[in-house]
Design a protein around this nucleic acid. Structure first.
Length: 407
RNA sequence: GGAGAGGUACCGAAGCGGUCAAACGGGACAGGCUGUAAACCUGUUGGCGCAAGCCUUCGGAGGUUCGAAUCCUCCCCUCUCCA
């Protein structure tokens, strides 16, 4: 396989564009000059197969590198996944069975294929070599790293300082990761900037066993919809690439204006000229950030669902949130009267799952957040007779309710 | 192994015998405003009940007391220092 006609220097530019760190350019250039496709490793966590926009930053880079003719290797950390990770931030990380990992890997593959050519990529599992590795050999490998070095990682350092427990196995994971690079003979490894230390550590370990060090390429971490924390499913600030169009559109619209430039920077694509134009206007203080946000949201939906879906998502959003009108499609719920002359509105709220308990439903009503056919419900004791109604809770939850006569 | 500090609601964190369904902050939800599900302001935030009230909750299990998140015993878990 031949690498595309680009010169090593031109290729370097592709690697470098938008990167948070690249260690080191000289080594990368040397590798590129050999003219052979590079083996580019990217590690994935099999316990979280749902990809979000934060992953997209890295995946887009992988795609660009793949288009240069390099070999992308997805490493699924099934071995690590089976050990589990009961401490620290990811305390809910489950211990996965073989079947679950296999299933997650499939999900993962399907999602990745929306961004790049999976057929051209290599998918590997680290149990392949980790299960062969003996304890003595692994401990020997560990002797090549130091605790101080591991503590350089932000996450560890902060937890150590603030007294949050760090499991010993968490210290071992970077070593496993390093060994993965050795086993795969990785030329380059990609990751988010939180992975920087790990990728550098792998370089040292590779060298210590006489292997050429991988180039460590990290990309900025995208902040989530809260505008502060990095995007992560467990923080609830993520926009998934398989989320429904309305979700992608709406969640994007909810990001604070302050990180809008950042999102444009990290998620934007050259062909999104109208986004660039609006961004320029906003930068100059002329445009309305709302419009820029809308344009970006539209493009993101379009990217994963096509332009029809993007139009529909935009329409729905404008209708619901700008003009405060009811959507034309809403869940339908049928309720049978159980006797008596009517059914309390509070019960409709719980039936529609707009309130988790009757108490919550009453609070909603008391706050003026409940409407029936557009008219505010003013009493917690309000009842409804058989018929059809549109029930609304808050600004955006709607349901069509059909109350039937008792049988 | 020794010494000390802790484990509280979705999260962080106060409370240290009754007035505690538990301050405060974040999150979430609702209302207002708006340029938007942004920002800002206001409110709500265990369950059942129209209500009075009842039930469940402060790491776990027992105990003391009219009464326990608060006191005692044992257990589990975490952190810090020393070895």
């Amino acid at each position: 396989m031949q690498v595309s006609g680009r010169t090593p220097e031109e290729q370097l530019e592709v690697f470098r564009k938008g990167a948070a760190a690249l260690a080191s350019e000289e080594e990368l250039l040397a590798k590129l000059r050999r003219g052979k496709p590079l083996r580019i490793k990217y590690g994935c966590d099999p316990s979280r197969p749902d990809l979000h926009l934060g992953h997209l930053v890295v995946l887009d880079k992988l795609r660009a590198l793949q288009e240069l003719g390099h070999r992308i290797i997805f490493l699924i950390g099934d071995f690590t996944g089976r050990i589990g990770d009961p401490t620290g931030r990811s305390r809910t990380r489950p211990i996965l069975s073989r079947e679950e990992i296999e299933r997650n890997a499939q999900t993962y593959r399907a999602q990745v294929s929306r961004v790049l050519d999976v057929g051209q990529a290599e998918i590997r599992f680290n149990s392949e070599w980790m299960e062969q590795l003996g304890v003595s050999e692994f401990i020997g490998l560990c002797s090549r790293a130091t605790v101080a070095r591991l503590l350089e990682r932000d996450d560890f350092r902060n937890r150590y300082r603030s007294g949050v427990p760090i499991g010993l196995h968490e210290f071992l994971y970077p070593m496993v990761q390093a060994y993965d690079s050795i086993a795969l003979e990785a030329d380059v490894e990609l990751g988010g900037s939180d992975q920087h230390i790990n990728l550098l550590l792998a370089r040292e370990i590779q060298r210590s066993v006489g292997q050429e060090a991988q180039v460590a390429l990290t990309l900025p971490l995208l902040e989530g919809t809260d505008g502060v924390e990095k995007m992560s499913k467990s923080l609830g600030n993520a926009v998934g690439i398989t989320d429904p169009p309305d979700e992608i559109y709406g969640r994007t619209m909810s990001i604070p204006d302050t990180i809008l430039p950042r999102w444009c920077e990290l998620l934007g694509r050259p062909e999104w000229s109208e986004v660039d134009a609006l961004r320029k206007q906003v930068d100059e203080g002329r445009g309305n950030p709302r419009d820029l946000k809308g344009a970006l949201a539209r493009r993101l939906v379009e990217r994963f669902w096509g332009s029809d879906a993007a139009n529909a998502a935009e329409d729905r959003f404008d209708r619901l949130f700008r003009r405060h009108e009811a959507p034309d499609d809403m869940p339908e719920i049928e309720v049978a009267l159980s006797g008596g002359e009517g059914i309390p509105v509070v019960d409709l709220l719980t039936r529609a799952e707009f309130a988790a308990s009757r108490g919550e439903g009453k609070r909603l009503i008391a706050q003026g957040g409940v409407r029936l056919d557009g008219k505010p419900v003013d009493s917690a004791e309000a009842q409804v007779e058989p018929g059809q109604y549109v029930l609304q809770a808050g600004k955006r939850r709607f349901a069509r309710i059909r109350v039937r006569e008792p049988i």
